[in-house]
């Protein structure tokens, strides 16, 4: 696997025991702080955690806790104000231009609102997951290499959309659209998946189907997952580790089995309703 090679490399270059232990994690977040405006409120107030190779890690917490902000910092859709993010042994914050794009293409992201291009076909939406690996000339003429097209068809079949390949994205139902989103992320051959409430826009039954599919595929492709979920029940069912957030602070971090009612009460203490 690619990230294993990467870890091996960073181990070789650094060598010290402490670093070797630290670089076992695919993702490390240290003392992360974010404010959207220089004079505005601090949204993340110093978050620390690490994600390992086998983690299927849920981030739970009331809305407004900063879950989306946290996950969007990791691929720099949001700029952190303070702290460190180390991904695949590489510090994320100093990256610029093509370095940043090269990092981003190794990170798959799935969004709450799917974020498909509605006026493009399902196939083109899935193929666009390869853009980071596609040259300017090929992408301009939408001439993706044969193996990308084969992979797209394979993934579409895998998520159960083989009969919708040429439909426009906005002709699909919510659950189907999110499956396109999943296929697009997997086109990248991602080494980590970031999911921002992938099922919050879906009804409960479909939510569980989509979550199960994501779990299956993550296991099949051996990708670690960091997943925001609002629905605690769904998080406990589908994830093996839980990070609880409240108002910009991490309030809980541990295996989902060890989570007690009082931990949940604490995380959701601020939420009215």
């Amino acid at each position: 696997m690619r990230h294993e090679k990467n870890i091996a490399e960073s181990r070789a270059t650094r060598g010290s025991t402490a670093d070797t232990v630290a670089s076992m994690s695919i993702l490390q977040v240290r003392n992360l702080k974010v404010s959207y405006a220089a004079s505005g409120p601090q949204i993340l107030k110093g978050i620390d955690f690490a994600v390992d190779g086998e983690d299927f890690c849920a981030v739970i917490g009331p809305s407004g806790a900063g879950k989306s902000t946290l996950i969007r910092c990791i691929n720099r859709l949001v700029e952190p104000t303070e702290g460190d993010i180390v991904l695949f042994g590489q510090s994320v914050r100093p990256l610029r231009g093509s370095e940043l794009r090269h990092l981003r293409r190794r990170i798959g992201m799935i969004f709450q609102e799917f974020n498909l291009v509605n006026r493009m076909s399902v196939m083109d939406n899935v193929l666009s997951g390869r853009l980071g690996y596609t040259g300017a000339f090929r992408s301009f003429f939408k001439a993706f290499p044969r193996e990308d097209i084969d992979r797209a068809l394979h993934l579409l079949e895998r998520v159960g959309l083989q009969d919708h390949v040429d439909k426009r994205a906005d002709a699909l139902s919510g659950g189907q659209r999110q499956r396109v989103g999943i296929a697009r992320a997997l086109m990248q051959k991602p080494e980590i998946l970031l999911l921002d409430e992938p099922t919050s826009a879906l009804d409960p039954k479909i939510s569980r189907d989509v979550m199960r599919l994501i779990r299956e595929l993550a296991t099949e492709f051996k990708v670690p997952v960091l997943c925001n979920i609002h629905d605690v029940q769904l998080a406990l069912e589908s994830c093996n580790r839980i990070i609880g957030m409240q108002d910009g602070y991490k309030k809980f971090d541990g295996p989902s089995k060890g989570m007690r009612k009082q931990d949940l009460d604490e995380i959701y203490a601020m939420e009215v309703l």
Binding site: I107, N115, L116, S128, L131, Q188
Partner: peptide, 18 residues
Amino acid sequence: PVDAMRSVGASPLQVFQY
């Protein structure tokens, strides 16, 4: 969609086109 294309590592021109 702009966020999505940025997050797959597309270049600014690709983001604009796609």
